[in-house]
Computed example of a mutant assay.
Amino acid sequence: MAALRGPRALLWRWWPNPLRRRSDRIEAWTMLAVALSALLAGTLGGLWATRSVELNLARERDEWRPVIGVLAERAPGTASGSEQVWAEVRWPAADGPAHRGQTRVDPGSAAGTPVTVWTDLQGRMVTRPATEAQASLRAGLIGVLVGTTAALVPLAGGRLLSERLQRRRLDQWDTEWERVGPQWRWKTG
């Protein structure tokens, strides 16, 4: 007799077979439901997260504006350094008083040097918004992560249920063997 191989081996629980137990049918339908719910949860969760991140980053691109500020003090370091350093910057605000904050500038820049800072609608300093390409990449990666996580929840539940059904089958097997086993003693020995 040839061993079961290929796709047929995956579907054995649905075949008519006198040895197939009720728990085999329950497990087959449960695992099908788990696979479909994992696919659905992963897809919907990933698409929802991707869309949400894309909308958030598009809103940031629309609302955040560059403002020209000035260095409040000379930037530390020498002009020969290639890495930027932190320095205090002032920029005008629409509501009156000037805002202050820290940003990265070229080392050794003189006080009063113009510096571009990005601000939100309230005039608070923010980072430069993500470009459309950066936003698409970020949204896609977050969508994959959220979708994978959402799909793992039903898969973990299905795994726990499968293990419980397996334990139950083994207990039933032990009970059945205790009932049938003594009948075979006279044939052995």
Score class of each variant (00 low, 15 high):
Val146Pro: 00
Glu163Phe: 07
Leu4Tyr: 12
Gly147Cys: 08
Leu137Ile: 13
Val180Arg: 15
Ala38Glu: 09
Ala98Ser: 15
Gly181Arg: 06
Ala98His: 07
Ala38Val: 06
Arg167Leu: 13
Arg74Asn: 10
Leu161His: 05
Arg74Phe: 00
Leu10Cys: 09
Asp174Ile: 11
Val146Cys: 09
Ala58Asp: 14
His99Ala: 10
Trp177Gly: 10
Val153Gly: 08
Pro18His: 12
Glu63Val: 15
Leu137Gly: 08
Leu10Asp: 02
Ala87Val: 01
Ala130Ile: 02
Gln122Trp: 07
Thr131Pro: 00
Asp106Ser: 15
Lys187Ser: 15
Val115Lys: 03
Asn56Ile: 04
His99Trp: 04
Glu27His: 02
Pro107Thr: 06
Trp177Ala: 14
Thr116Lys: 10
Glu27Lys: 01
Ile26Ser: 03
Ala72Gln: 08
Arg8His: 05
Thr175Glu: 15
Arg8Trp: 09
Pro107Gln: 04
Arg185Trp: 08
Val153Asn: 07
Arg25Lys: 07
Glu73Met: 10
Asp120Tyr: 10
Ala151Trp: 02
Arg128Gln: 15
Gln122Ile: 00
Leu32Asn: 07
Glu54Gln: 15
Pro114Met: 10
Arg185Lys: 14
Glu54Asn: 07
Leu121Glu: 14
Ala38Met: 12
Gly45Tyr: 08
Leu141Gly: 11
Leu161Ser: 11
Leu141Ala: 13
Arg104Cys: 03
Val34His: 03
Val117Lys: 04
Arg21Lys: 14
Thr50Asn: 09
Ala41Asp: 12
Arg124Met: 10
Glu83Asp: 06
Met31Tyr: 03
Gly143Lys: 07
Pro97Glu: 09
Ala2Asp: 12
Leu32Met: 14
Arg159Met: 06
Leu145Val: 12
Ile142Gly: 01
Glu27Asp: 11
Arg74Ala: 13
